[in-house]
């Protein structure tokens, strides 16, 4: 039981970060019907941006009180979200809007995004460094165990990550279902030409969708970078995983992305270790991705539009 809880917590932690990134994919897909392949670099930019701010504020981060810790965490989230939003905004202006104006074929967007992804990741590498092990100042003492129900070890960091992610997701859900901007996004996703006729400024809506998605990914970048390490190439794997999660949940569907992300994170941790089998792993951890992808393929074969189906409008 304790083992199971440990792995579940690990899975939920990773999964909530996947979910935050996946939301960006899904939002953009909703309004543009395009996979934003450069989204992973938005995530990476969030980590670098928040690091610069946090590092500036707390230095090495020794001896902070509880309230200060909370403040710094909020600061990191905000800084990450802003950096992510800025990069996403510029990305949309440079790599997407000109193509939209020209009525470019769908794959041209894909290649443009891939190019932007290469570019951003290497530019950050050149500007900051290309090492794989940049770390945030450990102001939270991230290894600290908070409490131990059933002998499991629940850590402060995990709680912080999960709570932040859940709050952000609730915020997004309210934003999309309850505000004028959210209505615009949903209308654009449903039928862009009609929405335009109804007075929705499509360009601005798309731009803001990128900003919202970028902010979420940037915040996830902060959480991820703080929990593990950050680097200029950190975005690639979480990006692919989050893309898979978004597809799994039903791309274009906000709640689908959340569920898909959490599911993928938990599955990744439970598959190779399978605590319920007891003791030794039943399958090596090196096979995790294989099992995950096989499951994904199977799910898609039987539910071709993901778990919750596609529509942005319907679920929110």
């Amino acid at each position: 039981m304790s083992e199971f809880l440990n792995f579940l917590m690990l899975g939920l932690t990773r999964g909530s970060m996947y979910a935050l990134i996946a939301l960006g994919y899904t939002l953009v897909y909703g309004v543009l019907q395009l996979i934003n392949f450069a989204h992973s670099e938005v995530f990476m930019a969030g980590a670098f941006g928040s690091f610069l701010v946090v590092h500036l504020v707390v230095g090495e981060g020794e001896g902070l009180g509880g309230f200060e810790q909370l403040l710094v965490t909020l600061l990191g989230l905000v800084a990450g979200a802003i950096s992510g939003a800025v990069v996403a905004f510029v990305l949309e202006r440079v790599a997407y809007r000109p193509l939209r104006r020209r009525g470019a074929p769908k794959l041209a967007f894909l290649i443009s995004a891939i190019g932007a992804s290469f570019f951003l990741s290497q530019l950050f590498g050149k500007l900051f460094n290309r090492l794989g092990n940049n770390q945030f100042p450990d102001y939270l003492h991230k290894g600290e165990v908070l409490w131990t129900p059933f002998g499991a070890r629940i850590k402060l960091l995990q709680v912080v990550i999960i709570i932040s992610a859940v709050l952000l997701m609730i915020f997004l859900d309210r934003l999309v279902s309850g505000t004028k901007l959210g209505r615009g996004i949903r209308a654009t996703a449903e039928d862009a030409p009609t929405a335009a006729l109804m007075g929705v400024d499509i360009d601005r809506t798309i731009s803001r969708t990128f900003i919202i998605g970028g902010a979420l990914a940037g915040a996830a970048g902060f959480l991820f970078g703080y929990a593990f390490v950050f680097s200029n190439t950190m975005g690639f794997i979480p990006g692919i995983k989050a893309f898979a999660a978004a597809v799994l949940g039903g791309i274009g569907n906000i709640r689908g992305a959340m569920i898909g992300g959490l599911l993928l994170g938990v599955a990744e941790n439970l598959i190779p270790t399978a605590p319920w089998v007891g003791g030794d792993a039943w399958i090596g951890q090196e096979w995790t991705d294989v099992v995950a992808f096989v499951l994904l393929i199977l799910i898609l074969v039987f539910r071709p539009t993901g778990i919750l189906g596609e529509r942005l409008g319907r679920a929110a």
């Binding site: 440079v94 193509l99 074929p105 041209a108 190019g115 932007a116 570019f119 530019l123 050149k126």
Partner: peptide
Amino acid sequence: SEDRVMWIGAVLVIMMIFRPQG
């Protein structure tokens, strides 16, 4: 050498902006 990928990325984006049909 380390920067080559960056330039290729830039070329891809520029090409798609100005000549999306290839």
